[in-house]
């Protein structure tokens, strides 16, 4: 087994989004951003909304993720189970922006409502803001 390569898999409940052998990956977790290189110690952690950067043979691939969790297995296998993943270049900025605005409007309406709803809306806003941010970042580069 080549020890300089990570077997990487990122899946949502709906499908496996990306599966490849990679050199390194930066992941946003609850306790801060981490970068995983091959031969990492086994780790389980919780993701938060943010930008995920994968480096493989072809170069760097940015993704926007919202919550989920990651598992690094001892044999250079990395698995990410995310709620929502998108490649940065496939995000439609306008629609993401609209979704965020909509969620924010609902938020102001729901201010008086129950806090369960509140938390969900906050999560939506975070997610959409993150999508917009990641998408914009890589739009400018191109």
């Amino acid at each position: 087994m080549n020890t300089n390569i990570l077997k990487f898999k990122i899946a949502t409940p709906e499908k496996v989004v990306y599966e490849n052998e990679i050199f390194q990956v930066s992941i946003p977790t609850m306790s801060g951003e981490i970068t995983v290189l091959p031969n990492h110690i086994p780790l389980v952690s919780v993701l938060k909304a943010g930008e995920l950067k994968i480096v493989d043979k072809e170069g760097e691939h940015p993704f926007a993720v919202s919550g989920g969790f990651l598992e690094i297995k001892g044999n250079n296998e990395l698995i990410i189970l995310a709620d929502n993943v998108e490649r940065a270049d496939t995000i439609d900025i306008d629609r993401a922006e609209q979704a965020r605005v909509r969620a924010e409007e609902e938020m102001t309406k729901a201010k008086t409502g129950e806090d369960v709803n509140f938390a969900r809306l906050q999560a939506v806003i975070d997610r959409e803001m993150n999508r917009v941010r990641v998408a914009k970042k890589y739009k400018n580069v191109k």
Partner: peptide, 8 residues
């Protein structure tokens, strides 16, 4: 490997 897992 389970003994060596780190949880964050």
């Amino acid at each position: 490997i389970t003994d060596t897992y780190i949880f964050e």
